[in-house]
Simulated assay, not measured.
Amino acid sequence: MTKNQLFRQFHCNLTIEETAKLCFKSVSTIKRWDSGDTIPKECKRLMRMYSNREISLSEDWAGFYCEQGKLVLPSGIRLTAAQILMASALVEIASDNDLKTSSYLVRVARALSDIKIRYGS
């Protein structure tokens, strides 16, 4: 088993077919990677992003990651694209009072998360 195959299968938890589809490559190309050919940097990054290894370099996204097509919040809640779109729509139609309450709750949640990170659970 090559380093590339270990990366694809165990680090990213992707099948050959999933990797081919994700990277817009043929199955035979992925098999060549598994045999030792170099995986292009952009494909490795896509594979990491898909398998929850990274979402952004920005501090605003600290604690967030993607896992198998869902956004995982720092709280562990997993959201589908439909749920995110619904939440966005609800924010768009919310009243000023609702927005102030929501902003306050987000600040409190982040503060609690910071305390948990600093002092453990």
Rank of each mutant, 00 (worst) to 15 (best):
2 T>Q: 06
2 T>A: 04
3 K>F: 09
5 Q>I: 09
5 Q>D: 13
6 L>G: 03
6 L>K: 04
8 R>Q: 07
10 F>R: 07
10 F>W: 02
11 H>P: 00
12 C>S: 11
13 N>H: 09
13 N>F: 05
14 L>F: 08
20 A>G: 03
20 A>R: 01
27 V>P: 03
28 S>M: 08
31 K>P: 01
31 K>N: 10
32 R>Q: 12
32 R>N: 13
39 I>Q: 05
39 I>S: 09
39 I>W: 01
39 I>D: 09
41 K>N: 03
53 R>F: 14
55 I>A: 14
57 L>Y: 10
59 E>H: 11
60 D>P: 02
61 W>V: 11
61 W>P: 07
61 W>T: 11
61 W>C: 14
66 C>T: 11
66 C>L: 14
68 Q>C: 08
69 G>S: 05
70 K>P: 04
75 S>G: 14
77 I>C: 12
79 L>Q: 06
83 Q>L: 08
90 L>S: 02
91 V>M: 10
93 I>V: 15
93 I>C: 14
94 A>K: 06
97 N>W: 04
98 D>N: 11
100 K>C: 02
100 K>V: 06
100 K>S: 05
100 K>I: 05
101 T>D: 00
102 S>K: 00
102 S>D: 00
104 Y>W: 00
105 L>S: 04
106 V>S: 05
107 R>T: 07
107 R>A: 12
107 R>F: 00
109 A>W: 01
110 R>A: 11
111 A>Y: 01
114 D>A: 14
116 K>T: 14
117 I>W: 02
120 G>A: 12
121 S>V: 12
